[in-house]
Simulated scan of single mutants.
Amino acid sequence: MSTRLAVVSTYPSTPCGIATFSAALVTHLAAAGADVGVVRLVDAPEDGAPPVVHQWVAGDPSGARSAAAVLDGYDVVVLQHEYGIYPGPDGQDVLDLMARVRVPVVTVLHTVLTRPSANQHRVLAGLVARSAALVTMTSTARDRLVEGWGVDPARVVVVPHGAEDNRAPGGGVQRLPERPATVLTWGLLSEGKGIEWALLGLAELRRRTPLPTYLVVGQTHPRVLERDGEAYRDRLVALTRDLDLTESVRFDGRYLSGTELRAVVRSADVVLLPYDSSEQVTSGVLTEAVAAGRPVVSTRFPHAVELLSGGAGLLVPRRDPAAIADALERVLTVDGVAGEMAATAQRLADAMLWPAVARQYLGLADGVRHPALPAAV
């Protein structure tokens, strides 16, 4: 009899990285033989269809209780955690859910902060205490839990983020000589993405070599749009104009996913992640870029340091346009550099693909369901 798994998360059509992550995980868990249902977090009730079996509506006083009643019909719960996706300050209502669920819970931690607020600390401590097992996607996040939060190392498993197989036939980076190189940044747009530093870096690069096309793909984050409108994007467009980069920079405000996004990623000669954060321990964009065999230039956030240090990309300081220009110049103009990075990324890809990741989750679920047996991870 197959394991019955319930996933608690945002879920498409919500434009959210965790929703996209959960949809891919659910698809591949089902392909591996699991019976999977989704308890979906929503701001307002929506039409639902399988695998969504229940909607937890923000603001519903009975939301956590109703969700827990559904979850207890499954063998194991796989709960995605990010502070911003659950109701209440810092998503604290997730603790009400955890207090009510009686089946084992595997909590997937998308963020592990080194300097949480008091309430953020309380929320994560509560999740740690009530979870049968914890998943991080990097060793950095695992170390933070073990060293900073005193979590038993045996309770924390590192499982890669997961990515579709988007490697181009034949591998490597190939560009038609008649077109400029393409540098790509994608994802939901918000302060902290560091696009302004990339634009300033391009202005510096222009003094040295013909400019690539810089493609910035993604809609403004819905929460940011509610609060600030398109203020950040408007500033970026204005900066592009002030730097006289309008011929080289393209903003595509669509939320791309699936086949369309994979095609855009494959077409990139370099993926640029100029993020401001020094805390980010999980990046789906980074994972997808490496799994597609694309050379990466990234600021030194923890996931990037861990994944790129072996040669799949170049690391640069945060908020340093000159360093971004240096790195792009090296990848785009020095013979063999892009090819070596792509080859290293190709070697990393197999362990990051969704079928392998789904098998690890199934093994972990079996382990918490039958604790006398070792988890096959």
Rank of each mutant, 00 (worst) to 15 (best):
V101F: 10
D35G: 03
A238M: 07
D276E: 15
E164N: 13
D75S: 05
T27L: 05
P45I: 12
P371N: 08
T138S: 15
D72S: 13
C16V: 07
L29Y: 08
L41P: 01
L113A: 11
L236N: 04
R294H: 06
I324L: 15
E226K: 13
Q92W: 09
T333R: 10
L362I: 02
A23M: 07
N166D: 15
L328F: 07
T240S: 12
E147A: 14
A356C: 05
E147R: 15
E191C: 03
G171L: 07
A312L: 05
S248P: 03
L29Q: 02
Y255C: 04
A268E: 04
L25G: 01
D96R: 14
D366W: 00
L95I: 08
E288D: 15
P50Y: 12
D75G: 07
T287F: 04
L315Q: 00
R294P: 03
P87Q: 11
P302G: 05
E329H: 11
W354E: 01
R206T: 06
N119D: 13
R207K: 14
L145H: 04
T209H: 14
A323T: 02
H28E: 14
V36I: 08
L176G: 14
V290W: 02
R100N: 05
R254V: 09
V331Q: 02
E230Q: 14
V52Q: 08
A365D: 01
A34S: 08
